[in-house]
Design a protein around this nucleic acid. Structure first.
Lengths: 157, 157
DNA sequence: GCGGCGAGTAAAGCAACTTGACTCAGGCGT
DNA sequence: ACGCCTGAGTCAAGTTGCTTTACTCGCCGC
Protein backbone atom coordinates (compact mmCIF):
# COMPACT_ATOMS: atom_id res chain seq x y z
CA UNK A 1 0.00 0.00 0.00
CA UNK A 2 1.11 3.55 0.73
CA UNK A 3 -0.01 4.74 -2.64
CA UNK A 4 1.58 7.99 -1.54
CA UNK A 5 -1.51 10.10 -1.95
CA UNK A 6 -0.57 13.76 -1.65
CA UNK A 7 -4.05 14.62 -0.43
CA UNK A 8 -3.68 12.25 2.50
CA UNK A 9 -0.91 14.48 3.81
CA UNK A 10 -2.71 17.71 3.13
CA UNK A 11 -3.93 19.61 6.15
CA UNK A 12 -7.67 19.60 6.75
CA UNK A 13 -7.80 23.36 6.35
CA UNK A 14 -6.39 23.11 2.85
CA UNK A 15 -8.67 20.23 1.92
CA UNK A 16 -11.64 22.30 2.98
CA UNK A 17 -10.34 25.28 1.04
CA UNK A 18 -9.77 23.28 -2.12
CA UNK A 19 -13.15 21.59 -1.90
CA UNK A 20 -14.95 24.84 -1.33
CA UNK A 21 -13.04 26.65 -4.02
CA UNK A 22 -13.65 23.94 -6.61
CA UNK A 23 -17.35 23.62 -5.90
CA UNK A 24 -17.88 27.36 -5.69
CA UNK A 25 -16.00 27.99 -8.93
CA UNK A 26 -18.18 25.48 -10.73
CA UNK A 27 -21.30 27.03 -9.20
CA UNK A 28 -20.29 30.53 -10.27
CA UNK A 29 -19.45 29.27 -13.76
CA UNK A 30 -22.85 27.69 -14.19
CA UNK A 31 -24.75 30.64 -12.80
CA UNK A 32 -22.90 32.94 -15.18
CA UNK A 33 -23.71 30.58 -18.02
CA UNK A 34 -27.37 30.62 -17.01
CA UNK A 35 -27.55 34.32 -17.71
CA UNK A 36 -26.11 36.06 -14.67
CA UNK A 37 -22.48 36.77 -15.55
CA UNK A 38 -22.45 39.99 -13.57
CA UNK A 39 -23.64 38.66 -10.23
CA UNK A 40 -20.97 37.74 -7.71
CA UNK A 41 -21.49 35.41 -4.77
CA UNK A 42 -22.08 38.38 -2.47
CA UNK A 43 -25.11 39.32 -4.53
CA UNK A 44 -26.62 35.90 -4.02
CA UNK A 45 -25.96 36.16 -0.29
CA UNK A 46 -27.70 39.52 -0.23
CA UNK A 47 -30.67 38.03 -2.07
CA UNK A 48 -30.90 35.30 0.53
CA UNK A 49 -30.99 37.87 3.31
CA UNK A 50 -33.67 39.84 1.50
CA UNK A 51 -35.85 36.92 0.48
CA UNK A 52 -39.16 36.80 2.25
CA UNK A 53 -40.06 40.42 2.78
CA UNK A 54 -36.86 42.41 2.64
CA UNK A 55 -34.96 44.23 5.35
CA UNK A 56 -33.61 47.69 6.00
CA UNK A 57 -30.26 48.65 4.57
CA UNK A 58 -28.68 48.63 7.99
CA UNK A 59 -29.86 45.13 8.80
CA UNK A 60 -28.61 43.91 5.43
CA UNK A 61 -25.24 45.41 6.29
CA UNK A 62 -25.13 43.58 9.61
CA UNK A 63 -26.10 40.27 8.06
CA UNK A 64 -23.44 40.65 5.38
CA UNK A 65 -20.82 41.81 7.84
CA UNK A 66 -20.07 45.11 6.15
CA UNK A 67 -20.72 48.76 6.96
CA UNK A 68 -24.08 50.26 6.15
CA UNK A 69 -22.39 52.47 3.57
CA UNK A 70 -21.08 49.43 1.75
CA UNK A 71 -24.50 47.83 1.88
CA UNK A 72 -25.98 51.04 0.55
CA UNK A 73 -23.62 51.00 -2.40
CA UNK A 74 -24.48 47.36 -3.06
CA UNK A 75 -28.18 48.19 -3.00
CA UNK A 76 -27.64 51.20 -5.30
CA UNK A 77 -25.93 48.94 -7.77
CA UNK A 78 -28.55 46.19 -7.56
CA UNK A 79 -31.32 48.77 -7.87
CA UNK A 80 -29.79 50.23 -11.02
CA UNK A 81 -29.69 46.75 -12.46
CA UNK A 82 -33.27 45.94 -11.55
CA UNK A 83 -32.70 43.31 -8.88
CA UNK A 84 -34.06 45.21 -5.87
CA UNK A 85 -36.15 48.29 -5.17
CA UNK A 86 -36.57 50.47 -2.12
CA UNK A 87 -40.02 50.63 -0.61
CA UNK A 88 -41.29 52.71 2.27
CA UNK A 89 -40.98 50.89 5.56
CA UNK A 90 -44.28 49.99 7.26
CA UNK A 91 -43.03 51.36 10.55
CA UNK A 92 -42.46 54.70 8.89
CA UNK A 93 -39.65 56.95 9.93
CA UNK A 94 -36.57 57.36 7.90
CA UNK A 95 -36.35 53.61 7.35
CA UNK A 96 -36.79 52.07 3.96
CA UNK A 97 -37.31 48.47 3.03
CA UNK A 98 -35.07 46.88 0.43
CA UNK A 99 -37.15 44.28 -1.40
CA UNK A 100 -36.36 41.88 -4.20
CA UNK A 101 -37.82 42.30 -7.66
CA UNK A 102 -39.12 39.40 -9.69
CA UNK A 103 -35.79 39.35 -11.48
CA UNK A 104 -33.92 38.61 -8.26
CA UNK A 105 -36.43 35.96 -7.23
CA UNK A 106 -35.88 34.25 -10.56
CA UNK A 107 -32.15 34.36 -9.94
CA UNK A 108 -32.62 32.71 -6.56
CA UNK A 109 -34.60 29.94 -8.21
CA UNK A 110 -31.96 29.44 -10.88
CA UNK A 111 -29.15 29.44 -8.33
CA UNK A 112 -31.01 26.92 -6.21
CA UNK A 113 -31.48 24.63 -9.19
CA UNK A 114 -27.78 24.92 -10.04
CA UNK A 115 -26.77 24.07 -6.48
CA UNK A 116 -28.96 21.00 -6.41
CA UNK A 117 -27.94 19.85 -9.86
CA UNK A 118 -24.31 20.23 -8.91
CA UNK A 119 -24.82 18.27 -5.74
CA UNK A 120 -26.68 15.54 -7.61
CA UNK A 121 -23.85 15.26 -10.13
CA UNK A 122 -21.33 15.00 -7.34
CA UNK A 123 -23.41 12.28 -5.72
CA UNK A 124 -23.34 10.39 -9.00
CA UNK A 125 -19.64 11.01 -9.42
CA UNK A 126 -18.29 10.05 -6.05
CA UNK A 127 -21.17 7.90 -4.85
CA UNK A 128 -24.31 8.84 -3.00
CA UNK A 129 -23.07 7.21 0.18
CA UNK A 130 -19.84 9.13 0.09
CA UNK A 131 -21.60 12.41 -0.52
CA UNK A 132 -23.98 11.70 2.32
CA UNK A 133 -21.03 10.91 4.57
CA UNK A 134 -19.33 14.13 3.52
CA UNK A 135 -22.46 16.11 4.37
CA UNK A 136 -22.76 14.36 7.71
CA UNK A 137 -19.19 15.00 8.71
CA UNK A 138 -19.23 18.58 7.50
CA UNK A 139 -22.38 19.20 9.52
CA UNK A 140 -20.71 17.71 12.54
CA UNK A 141 -17.69 19.95 12.06
CA UNK A 142 -19.76 23.08 11.61
CA UNK A 143 -21.92 22.29 14.61
CA UNK A 144 -18.86 21.62 16.72
CA UNK A 145 -17.33 24.95 15.81
CA UNK A 146 -20.38 27.17 15.64
CA UNK A 147 -23.00 25.53 17.81
CA UNK A 148 -26.54 25.33 16.56
CA UNK A 149 -26.55 28.68 14.82
CA UNK A 150 -24.84 28.28 11.46
CA UNK A 151 -22.51 31.20 10.87
CA UNK A 152 -23.37 33.67 8.13
CA UNK A 153 -21.29 33.06 5.04
CA UNK A 154 -19.20 36.05 4.15
CA UNK A 155 -17.28 36.51 0.95
CA UNK A 156 -13.92 37.04 2.56
CA UNK A 157 -10.90 35.00 3.32
CA UNK B 1 -37.09 11.35 14.44
CA UNK B 2 -36.80 14.28 12.04
CA UNK B 3 -34.93 16.37 14.55
CA UNK B 4 -35.30 19.09 11.95
CA UNK B 5 -31.61 19.84 11.65
CA UNK B 6 -31.15 23.01 9.61
CA UNK B 7 -27.75 21.84 8.46
CA UNK B 8 -29.27 18.71 6.94
CA UNK B 9 -31.10 20.94 4.48
CA UNK B 10 -28.15 23.19 3.78
CA UNK B 11 -26.61 22.88 0.35
CA UNK B 12 -23.23 21.17 0.19
CA UNK B 13 -21.65 24.33 -1.18
CA UNK B 14 -22.70 26.28 1.89
CA UNK B 15 -21.60 23.53 4.25
CA UNK B 16 -18.19 23.59 2.65
CA UNK B 17 -18.07 27.36 2.86
CA UNK B 18 -19.04 27.44 6.50
CA UNK B 19 -16.62 24.71 7.43
CA UNK B 20 -13.78 26.36 5.60
CA UNK B 21 -14.60 29.79 6.96
CA UNK B 22 -14.80 28.57 10.54
CA UNK B 23 -11.58 26.58 10.41
CA UNK B 24 -9.70 29.30 8.57
CA UNK B 25 -10.88 32.00 10.95
CA UNK B 26 -9.65 29.99 13.90
CA UNK B 27 -6.35 29.37 12.13
CA UNK B 28 -5.85 33.05 11.37
CA UNK B 29 -6.78 33.98 14.92
CA UNK B 30 -4.20 31.63 16.39
CA UNK B 31 -1.46 32.64 13.99
CA UNK B 32 -2.10 36.28 14.83
CA UNK B 33 -1.96 35.41 18.51
CA UNK B 34 1.32 33.62 17.95
CA UNK B 35 2.94 36.84 16.87
CA UNK B 36 1.97 37.36 13.23
CA UNK B 37 -1.04 39.67 13.32
CA UNK B 38 -0.07 41.35 10.09
CA UNK B 39 0.23 38.28 7.87
CA UNK B 40 -2.80 37.39 5.80
CA UNK B 41 -3.46 33.94 4.35
CA UNK B 42 -2.03 35.03 1.02
CA UNK B 43 1.31 35.62 2.68
CA UNK B 44 1.39 32.08 3.97
CA UNK B 45 0.52 30.81 0.51
CA UNK B 46 3.38 32.83 -0.94
CA UNK B 47 5.74 31.39 1.66
CA UNK B 48 4.68 27.90 0.67
CA UNK B 49 5.45 28.64 -2.95
CA UNK B 50 8.84 30.08 -2.02
CA UNK B 51 9.85 27.41 0.46
CA UNK B 52 12.70 25.26 -0.72
CA UNK B 53 14.83 27.62 -2.74
CA UNK B 54 12.61 30.43 -3.88
CA UNK B 55 11.31 31.33 -7.31
CA UNK B 56 11.28 34.30 -9.62
CA UNK B 57 8.67 36.96 -9.16
CA UNK B 58 6.92 35.92 -12.32
CA UNK B 59 6.63 32.30 -11.26
CA UNK B 60 5.33 33.35 -7.87
CA UNK B 61 2.70 35.42 -9.67
CA UNK B 62 1.61 32.43 -11.73
CA UNK B 63 1.41 30.15 -8.72
CA UNK B 64 -0.68 32.69 -6.82
CA UNK B 65 -2.87 33.45 -9.80
CA UNK B 66 -2.16 37.16 -9.94
CA UNK B 67 -0.27 39.46 -12.28
CA UNK B 68 3.46 39.76 -11.90
CA UNK B 69 2.98 43.37 -10.84
CA UNK B 70 0.74 42.30 -7.97
CA UNK B 71 3.29 39.68 -6.98
CA UNK B 72 5.98 42.33 -7.16
CA UNK B 73 4.03 44.54 -4.77
CA UNK B 74 3.53 41.61 -2.41
CA UNK B 75 7.26 40.90 -2.47
CA UNK B 76 8.08 44.58 -1.91
CA UNK B 77 5.87 44.55 1.15
CA UNK B 78 7.27 41.29 2.50
CA UNK B 79 10.81 42.48 1.86
CA UNK B 80 10.21 45.69 3.78
CA UNK B 81 8.96 43.61 6.67
CA UNK B 82 11.88 41.23 6.59
CA UNK B 83 10.16 38.07 5.41
CA UNK B 84 11.84 37.70 2.02
CA UNK B 85 14.83 39.06 0.20
CA UNK B 86 15.76 39.23 -3.47
CA UNK B 87 18.88 37.39 -4.49
CA UNK B 88 20.56 37.26 -7.88
CA UNK B 89 19.31 34.39 -9.97
CA UNK B 90 21.88 31.66 -10.69
CA UNK B 91 20.96 31.67 -14.36
CA UNK B 92 21.80 35.35 -14.47
CA UNK B 93 19.97 37.68 -16.74
CA UNK B 94 17.42 40.09 -15.45
CA UNK B 95 15.91 37.41 -13.27
CA UNK B 96 16.03 37.61 -9.54
CA UNK B 97 15.24 34.96 -6.99
CA UNK B 98 12.83 35.72 -4.20
CA UNK B 99 13.94 33.71 -1.18
CA UNK B 100 12.59 33.39 2.33
CA UNK B 101 14.41 34.80 5.31
CA UNK B 102 14.73 32.94 8.58
CA UNK B 103 11.79 34.95 9.86
CA UNK B 104 9.50 33.54 7.18
CA UNK B 105 10.74 30.01 7.74
CA UNK B 106 9.92 30.39 11.41
CA UNK B 107 6.47 31.55 10.45
CA UNK B 108 5.96 28.49 8.29
CA UNK B 109 6.93 26.28 11.22
CA UNK B 110 4.54 28.09 13.54
CA UNK B 111 1.72 27.98 11.02
CA UNK B 112 2.30 24.27 10.51
CA UNK B 113 2.14 23.61 14.23
CA UNK B 114 -1.06 25.63 14.49
CA UNK B 115 -2.64 23.67 11.65
CA UNK B 116 -1.80 20.35 13.21
CA UNK B 117 -2.85 21.40 16.70
CA UNK B 118 -6.15 22.61 15.32
CA UNK B 119 -6.72 19.38 13.47
CA UNK B 120 -5.85 17.35 16.57
CA UNK B 121 -8.32 19.34 18.64
CA UNK B 122 -11.01 18.81 16.06
CA UNK B 123 -10.28 15.10 16.09
CA UNK B 124 -10.75 15.11 19.84
CA UNK B 125 -13.87 17.22 19.57
CA UNK B 126 -15.81 15.38 16.90
CA UNK B 127 -14.09 12.02 17.11
CA UNK B 128 -11.01 10.73 15.35
CA UNK B 129 -13.09 8.42 13.17
CA UNK B 130 -15.32 11.24 12.05
CA UNK B 131 -12.39 13.49 11.26
CA UNK B 132 -10.73 10.72 9.29
CA UNK B 133 -13.96 10.16 7.40
CA UNK B 134 -14.22 13.88 6.69
CA UNK B 135 -10.68 13.88 5.32
CA UNK B 136 -11.37 10.83 3.20
CA UNK B 137 -14.53 12.24 1.69
CA UNK B 138 -13.03 15.67 1.10
CA UNK B 139 -10.09 14.04 -0.66
CA UNK B 140 -12.48 12.08 -2.81
CA UNK B 141 -14.38 15.24 -3.70
CA UNK B 142 -11.24 17.17 -4.55
CA UNK B 143 -9.85 14.36 -6.63
CA UNK B 144 -13.12 13.99 -8.49
CA UNK B 145 -13.20 17.69 -9.35
CA UNK B 146 -9.52 18.36 -9.93
CA UNK B 147 -7.95 15.08 -10.85
CA UNK B 148 -4.65 14.14 -9.32
CA UNK B 149 -3.18 17.61 -9.32
CA UNK B 150 -4.56 19.46 -6.35
CA UNK B 151 -5.56 22.97 -7.39
CA UNK B 152 -3.57 25.89 -6.05
CA UNK B 153 -5.43 27.60 -3.25
CA UNK B 154 -6.15 31.20 -4.05
CA UNK B 155 -7.45 33.78 -1.63
CA UNK B 156 -10.48 34.72 -3.64
CA UNK B 157 -14.13 33.88 -3.65
C1' DG C 1 26.09 43.83 -33.43
C1' DC C 2 21.16 43.80 -33.57
C1' DG C 3 16.38 42.17 -32.89
C1' DG C 4 13.50 40.52 -29.97
C1' DC C 5 12.02 37.68 -26.01
C1' DG C 6 11.08 37.65 -21.34
C1' DA C 7 11.87 39.31 -16.38
C1' DG C 8 11.19 43.12 -13.92
C1' DT C 9 9.45 47.98 -12.84
C1' DA C 10 6.78 52.28 -12.95
C1' DA C 11 2.53 54.65 -13.18
C1' DA C 12 -2.16 55.16 -13.50
C1' DG C 13 -6.77 53.24 -12.99
C1' DC C 14 -10.34 50.69 -10.79
C1' DA C 15 -13.43 48.06 -7.56
C1' DA C 16 -14.92 47.30 -3.24
C1' DC C 17 -14.60 48.43 0.56
C1' DT C 18 -13.62 51.79 4.94
C1' DT C 19 -13.82 56.11 8.08
C1' DG C 20 -15.72 60.46 9.10
C1' DA C 21 -19.16 63.76 8.87
C1' DC C 22 -23.57 64.96 7.95
C1' DT C 23 -29.19 65.02 7.38
C1' DC C 24 -33.38 63.98 8.90
C1' DA C 25 -37.68 61.62 10.95
C1' DG C 26 -39.67 60.10 14.94
C1' DG C 27 -40.05 59.05 20.05
C1' DC C 28 -39.66 60.73 24.56
C1' DG C 29 -39.16 63.36 28.75
C1' DT C 30 -40.24 67.51 30.86
C1' DA D 1 -45.45 72.31 22.85
C1' DC D 2 -40.66 72.11 22.78
C1' DG D 3 -36.08 70.46 22.77
C1' DC D 4 -33.23 66.71 22.03
C1' DC D 5 -31.47 62.36 21.48
C1' DT D 6 -31.39 58.10 18.70
C1' DG D 7 -30.86 55.64 14.75
C1' DA D 8 -31.52 55.05 9.48
C1' DG D 9 -29.77 56.72 5.62
C1' DT D 10 -26.51 59.50 2.62
C1' DC D 11 -22.44 62.19 0.97
C1' DA D 12 -17.58 62.51 0.44
C1' DA D 13 -12.99 61.24 0.88
C1' DG D 14 -9.51 57.83 1.83
C1' DT D 15 -7.50 52.99 1.67
C1' DT D 16 -6.31 48.56 -0.16
C1' DG D 17 -5.25 45.28 -3.30
C1' DC D 18 -5.45 44.41 -7.26
C1' DT D 19 -5.37 45.37 -12.85
C1' DT D 20 -4.03 47.50 -17.35
C1' DT D 21 -0.79 49.87 -19.93
C1' DA D 22 3.63 51.11 -20.92
C1' DC D 23 8.10 51.08 -20.27
C1' DT D 24 13.45 49.41 -19.18
C1' DC D 25 16.89 46.26 -19.41
C1' DG D 26 19.85 41.88 -19.93
C1' DC D 27 20.78 37.98 -22.57
C1' DC D 28 20.51 34.79 -26.62
C1' DG D 29 20.24 33.57 -31.53
C1' DC D 30 21.21 34.76 -35.90
Amino acid sequence: MTTDDPLARTELTFLLGMGFQLVLAEFVRRVAEAGYPDLRPVHGLAFQVLRGGGTTGTELAERLGVTKQAAGQLVDDLERRGYVRRAPHPSGGRRRLVVLTERAIEHLAVAGRVLHALEAELAAGIGADDLAALRTELSRLVRHLAGDSPPPLRPLW
